[in-house]
Write a protein that binds this DNA or RNA. Structure first.
Length: 462
RNA sequence: GCCAAGGUGGCGGAACGGCCACGCAAUUGCCUGCAGAGCAAUACCAAACCGGUUCGACUCCGGUCCUUGGCUCCA
């Protein structure tokens, strides 16, 4: 199994530190606002990574932080006139709901920054003791000049990192030095050896990973924009405080999600939240959309491509529906075509896993599924299908769908405010009309139901 | 300026030194009472441009042009 490692810029054979256990950390959200579809892209991608590792027999511990202390949270809380804790809990709750809707269910533990302040303080203390950090009137800073590897992940040398957009704190020795502890006399503050204050941006992640994983672990993930400075800072803090290198064996980064070819940002007004997305498209269609591009590539969100994904998903769901229908009438017989079909099923699984083994190539893995879909349509089109083959096929779709977090099921009618029984009743009456060849009325029923988003697809009248 | 990724058919999007990706959309045929679903077939040289290597390049090498992202807010 190969994983592309941002640190080395190469695909590397995946070998966890502890035989078949995988410790994996992905940077979670700062909970000051609704989660957007960029978050969704990244977390769906890593959900599939975790699912696949588990499928491959690894014991996966997937840890994610929730940053609930930050300038933006404080600012937003003040705007809304609520405490930072209230604000953070509100958006944390909404974030978890969104993830649940999107089928992101592989995370083993969510860890709040504010629940790990003692560990954060402890780590900062060690950094000062070892001479990697220094205190000024405004806070505690990491001295980048003491850590020559700073910049390795983003492939930059420390002296090239002199540009800055935000005016650096004047008490810092070097503009590239970053904050570990901010001295603040605000409501949201903790006691520390350096007086009241709160953690800097990067330290919560290394304190959390050290708590649960120790100084070294297997996979650290996040979106590309976190490579610098966030992940560089994490490496510096963790490796300097523990003395162990490397902190992380495999660095994985997802590509950005753009909207209509533009970066998503509040100032451009193209900021789309997960909730907004889900009023227009199904979570499953969005997952398919995300997985049809490799996780490292940028992906462009447009209405058109989501429509495409919706239809693509229907192609698979329609097949699974047909397989289930055939199951009802199938007999325990075997046919000539069976052997070939069973071989195709096995071969599809093999190719699917081969694609996933190659740095989680979900796009290629999906093409294997679509090839199989066509083969199965051919198979059941011959009207001779054995129960054995059909159930093997259905099991395979459940198995592979489970890896991708896709269910391949038709939308249930219940969601539309109609009970299944009522729809069944209408179907039965309409079927009688069709037997009498009352096409006018049966077509009208079909059209009217379509207006209600109930799609009727007829088979041959016997 | 520095660093990184990339330019593939009408669209989305993979792999690969020579063979059909796959999906969506389109056209035709089959099937169907019709529609849908589905099957089959078709789409002039699909590969940003210019050189080179090679029997052969979308795929390798060199150069040019362009796009996007990061450079301490950011999944």
């Amino acid at each position: 199994m190969m994983i592309y490692n941002t640190m080395t810029g190469n695909k590397e054979a995946f070998e966890p530190i502890h035989r078949n256990r995988v410790n994996m950390f992905v940077c979670g959200p700062t909970v000051y606002d609704e989660a957007h579809i960029g978050h969704a892209r990244t977390y769906i991608a890593f959900d599939v990574v975790a699912r696949y590792l588990a499928y491959r027999g690894f014991g996966v511990f997937y840890l994610q932080n929730v940053t609930d202390v930050d300038d933006k949270i404080i600012k937003r809380g003040a705007e809304l006139g609520i405490t930072t804790a209230e604000l953070a809990r509100r958006f944390e709750g909404r974030y978890l709901e969104d993830m649940c809707t999107l089928g992101v269910e592989s995370v083993s533990l969510y860890a709040r920054a504010t629940n790990h302040v003692p560990e954060i303080i402890d780590q900062i203390k060690r950094l000062i003791e070892k001479g990697y950090a220094y205190e000024t009137e405004t806070g505690v800073y990491f001295d980048v000049s003491k850590f020559p590897e700073f910049g390795a992940l983003s492939h930059q040398t420390p002296d090239s990192l002199t540009k800055h957009r935000i005016e650096p704190d004047p008490t810092k020795r070097n503009p590239a030095d970053f904050s570990l502890w901010k001295k603040r006399e605000e409501k949201l503050a903790w006691d520390s050896p350096w007086g009241k204050g709160r953690p800097g941006w990067h330290i919560e992640d290394t304190a959390i990973t050290e708590t649960y994983f120790g100084p070294q672990y297997d996979i650290h993930g996040g979106a590309r924009d976190l490579i610098f400075p966030h992940h560089e800072a994490e490496i510096a803090q963790a490796e300097a405080s523990s003395g162990k290198k490397p902190m992380v064996k495999y660095w994985m980064h997802t590509g950005f999600l753009n909207i209509n070819g533009e970066k998503m940002s509040k100032s451009l007004g193209n900021f789309t939240t997960i909730r907004d997305l889900l009023t227009r498209f199904s979570p499953q269609a969005f997952r398919l959309f995300v997985l049809s591009t490799h996780y490292r590539s940028p992906i462009d969100f447009t209405e058109g491509s989501l429509d495409q994904s919706t239809r693509s998903l229907e192609r698979i769901s329609n097949l699974v529906q047909s397989l289930n229908d055939h199951m009802k009438n199938a007999v325990m017989e075997s046919y000539e075509a069976d052997e070939e079909m069973v071989r195709a099923l096995e071969s599809a699984r093999g190719k699917f896993l081969e694609a996933m083994d190659d740095d989680f190539n979900t796009s290629l893995a999906l093409s294997v599924i679509f090839d199989l879909v066509r083969d199965l349509y051919r198979y059941i089109g011959d009207e001779k299908s054995s129960k054995n083959v059909l159930s093997q096929a259905l099991n395979l779709f459940a198995e592979l769908g489970g890896i991708l977090g896709l269910e391949f099921k038709a939308q249930p009618a219940g969601k539309l405010g109609l009970t299944d029984d009522l729809v069944e009743l209408i179907m039965e009456i309409r079927q009688k009309l069709r037997e009498r060849k009352d096409w006018m009325l049966s077509d009208e029923i079909r059209d009217r139901l379509r207006d209600l988003k109930v799609i009727v697809e007829d088979k041959k009248v016997k």
